[in-house]
């Protein structure tokens, strides 16, 4: 039998991890971030480096893999890698203080620089990486629905989704305006003054159109019963994959183990 339209708009994920309830994913990310911060406080070697953060980062690609989104997620990690590499490079070679560990011509690595390099670089990689896992495996439709199900006002969900769509609309519109300007001979290349001049006539009509349009949209939404009191129906049904409890329990156990490890290290001292 042919599917109904209501069935067609549902999201059905085969992968149980990808299909985790969005709030559960967030809980996992938070537990992971706490663990990361605790691990960061464990300093190894004489130079006091948070070296454990490096193997800990393996968990990020591992999560990508078991979610079945490895390639896509790794690709969106690119800007994060750039930031992390930048941080590590700058801190390693520029920050002074402590013993000199390595020296070659004008480059030198000092203890303090390396400490912050590894700490900050891998904190960013780990935490931003886990957020990437959550966000790449969850559609915005699921996030928006989850907002509402966790008790937030439906207006919050509306603004969230609407903003995303508005970004798409505006990006397209700015491209159109920019193209139109080019065809009218407005320069978008060349020196700074020329390029700066192209910015203004592109952004102004966008804002203006947006503000006038939102007035009409208020009425459109009112006409569709937006602010009606009472229970709303939701055609889109946010499902749980059934692995929520399991994943959460595993995450909690790992976090507790890390806390225990941290405490026992203090005791040993």
């Amino acid at each position: 039998m042919e599917k109904t339209f209501t069935e067609k708009i549902q999201i059905n994920k085969r992968n149980k991890i990808a299909g985790l309830y969005p709030a559960t994913k967030l809980q996992i990310v938070i537990l992971f971030s706490i663990s990361t911060l605790i691990i960061n406080s464990i300093k190894l070697t004489d130079a006091k480096l948070a070296l454990l953060l490096i193997p800990w980062f393996a968990l990020v690609p591992f999560m990508f893999a078991i979610t079945g989104e490895f390639k896509k997620s790794m690709k969106s990690m690119k800007p994060i890698f750039v930031v992390a590499i930048f941080i590590i490079a700058v801190q390693t070679f520029i920050v002074s203080g402590g013993q000199t560990l390595w020296h070659w011509h004008f480059l030198s690595i000092r203890e303090k620089g390396l400490q912050t390099a590894i700490s900050l670089g891998f904190l960013v990689l780990n935490i931003a990486g886990m957020f990437t896992w959550m966000l790449q495996s969850t559609s915005t439709k699921e996030i928006s629905r989850c907002f509402e199900e966790s008790g937030m006002n439906f207006k919050v969900a509306y603004i969230f989704t609407s903003s995303l769509e508005m970004i798409k609309v505006f990006s397209k519109r700015s491209q159109t305006i920019l193209d139109a300007q080019r065809s009218r001979g407005v320069e978008t290349e060349g020196n700074l003054k020329v390029r700066a001049k192209a910015f203004f006539p592109t952004i102004v009509p966008l804002i203006l159109g947006g503000i006038i349009g939102s007035e009409d949209r208020v009425l459109t939404l009112e006409a569709r019963g937006f602010s009606i009191k009472g229970e709303h129906t939701h055609l889109f049904d946010l499902k749980k994959s059934g692995y929520e409890r399991r994943m959460l329990v595993v995450s909690i156990i790992i976090t507790l183990l890390i806390i225990a490890g941290r405490i026992s290290l203090w005791r040993m001292k």
């Binding site: 603004i159 903003s163 508005m166 970004i167 952004i203 966008l206 804002i207 503000i211 939102s214 939404l221």
Partner: peptide, 12 residues
Amino acid sequence: LIIPVGVAVNFV
């Protein structure tokens, strides 16, 4: 409804 407009203007 102005909020999404603001967000999109920031982005663009």
